Amino acid sequence: MCVSFGVMLPVGNPPNAIVFSYGHLQISDMVKAGFGVNLIGVAVVMLAITTWGVPLFNLTEFPAWAVAGNVTSSL
């Protein structure tokens, strides 16, 4: 999801490339406008992970399927 916040550069998404191809914008203009959007996007994703991540994905418990056992001692 964070990858979709690539709005600072012309190669970030196709609409940016189209707008940049007209030649009226410089890369520095796009970086100035996109930096705030990226900060807001990262803040929203971090807030969502810390608030919704725990109840939705049960992040407080270690899953039973992820327990690493010693495979060599069973021979």
Rank of each mutant, 00 (worst) to 15 (best):
M1C: 09
V3K: 09
S4W: 06
F5T: 02
G6W: 04
G6A: 15
L9A: 07
L9P: 00
P10M: 06
P10G: 05
P10L: 04
G12R: 06
G12F: 04
G12E: 02
N13Y: 00
P14S: 03
P15G: 00
P15F: 00
A17S: 15
I18P: 00
I18N: 06
F20I: 01
S21L: 02
S21A: 08
Y22A: 05
H24I: 06
Q26M: 09
Q26Y: 03
I27S: 03
S28P: 00
D29N: 14
M30V: 03
M30R: 01
V31H: 00
K32P: 00
G34F: 03
F35L: 10
G36N: 02
G36K: 04
G36D: 01
V37T: 11
V37N: 09
L39D: 03
L39S: 04
I40G: 05
I40R: 11
G41R: 11
G41K: 10
V44S: 12
M46T: 05
L47P: 01
A48S: 15
A48L: 15
I49K: 10
V54C: 11
P55A: 11
P55L: 06
P55G: 09
L56R: 14
F57P: 01
N58E: 02
L59V: 05
L59Y: 08
E61C: 08
A64V: 13
A66M: 12
V67C: 04
G69P: 02
G69L: 12
N70Y: 07
N70L: 09
V71E: 15
S73M: 14
S74V: 10
S74K: 14
